[in-house]
Design a protein around this nucleic acid. Structure first.
Lengths: 203, 203
DNA sequence: TTTATTTTTGAATGAACGTTCAAAATGTTA
DNA sequence: TAACATTTTGAACGTTCATTCAAAAATAAA
């Protein structure tokens, strides 16, 4: 295989091909970190999960922390994409948001449920690594801004800002409350009782 | 000092006195674990925080895990006590609850804010230790039941159950959302917009 | 085939981890 | 003072941690 990457007027050829797909490896790393946390995950676990040897993993990702940061930003990007796809695929913005919240509750019924990677990172690492805290906060700000943008197609700017704050708080609440045993009898009713404006559907 | 502890018809005398107060040590351990998490806290840190030598600490608490579990249950007990004292010291149950929520937001402004020890434990250790997960869930159930009991002095049983669920979700939400930068302009207004029933004051 | 370049391998490394325990210190009783 | 029960001490232990790097393998161009 010849890649023909022009670098400084030269043509580089690749003499050995990577045996692994970095995207797949990242996905596996996300799942491991997500479940066990940063300090709770050992390199051994990551090597096992990815099937890589230490040398290869370090050549590609620099360090455990480097791998974690990449996993984190990958996860954050996927989150926003998922939200928007869900809203687009719904009959209305409010219906989309409502179904996102209902799903959060229902995901939590899975026995391997492990909450939100961003939230877990925030709580675990806020005391260790200020830059990660900033990093995660920025991602949450993006997510909130994204909800706000969607709400502005229905509500005034002021109300959209307010509702998107409520939304974030409730999402965080669901993310933690879901760990507790049983689901409310009717999840949708419960959500609408906290965020009644989700009922008014301007579709 | 003679303690005179009767054990099996004998009188035991204490020949050497403990130099530390186990309650103080526990408090110091709580603060360290609370801030850095279980895996993020090393025995070295705990020895430094408590001023104990490894032998003394292990003689008293068995292991790192033993110390953590004791710290956790101590923290949980203090939580319920604090809630009830706050409600008792308020002009009404609803006013007490409202002020608890407002305080949660304001605590988060402290630069050494580290959220809720129980929530952090739940998120960090749910994948490692099923018994801790159960433990924490039980504590949350107690806290929810305690809110419910207080609400029943005002509302019907059914409504109290419902409202205490809302309350727990919102508390979790505040606990996580607070990490994000700025406080809402008017915290009380924000809280009342999510839990409007806190407004109706039957004092 | 030789040369060139990149990737994989995996044993080895030093540091940090949680934990132990024999010896010393402590303070009361006899 | 001697005998004792209890606590403190802290060096040492074996393990696991994240990480490294010289050597081998892989692949394509010359």
């Amino acid at each position: 295989m010849l890649l023909n990457i022009p670098v400084l007027n030269k043509v580089m050829s690749v003499m050995a091909i990577k045996k692994f797909d970095a995207n797949v490896v990242l996905e596996q790393a996300i799942n491991t970190f997500w479940q066990y946390g940063y300090h709770g995950t050992s390199m051994q676990q990551l090597l096992q999960a990815t099937g890589l040897r230490p040398g290869s993993l370090y050549r590609e990702f620099e360090s455990k922390e480097g791998l974690y940061l990449l996993a984190l930003s990958r996860y954050a990007a996927a989150t926003i994409t998922t939200v928007n796809k869900r809203i687009e695929g719904s009959s209305s913005v409010l219906d989309g948001i409502k179904s996102i919240l209902v799903d959060l509750f229902e995901e939590a019924q899975a026995k391997d449920y492990c909450g939100c990677f961003l939230v877990k990172t925030q709580l675990e690492l806020s005391a260790h690594n200020e830059s990660i805290l900033t990093n995660v906060s920025e991602e949450f700000a993006k997510i909130e801004a994204n909800y706000c943008t969607n709400l502005k197609t229905i509500f005034s700017d002021e109300i959209s800002v307010h509702y998107s704050k409520q939304l974030m708080l409730v999402i965080f609440g669901i993310r933690v409350y879901s760990y507790q045993a049983e689901q409310p009898e009717d999840v949708e009713v419960f959500i609408l009782s906290i965020l009644p404006w989700l009922k008014e559907d301007f579709a």
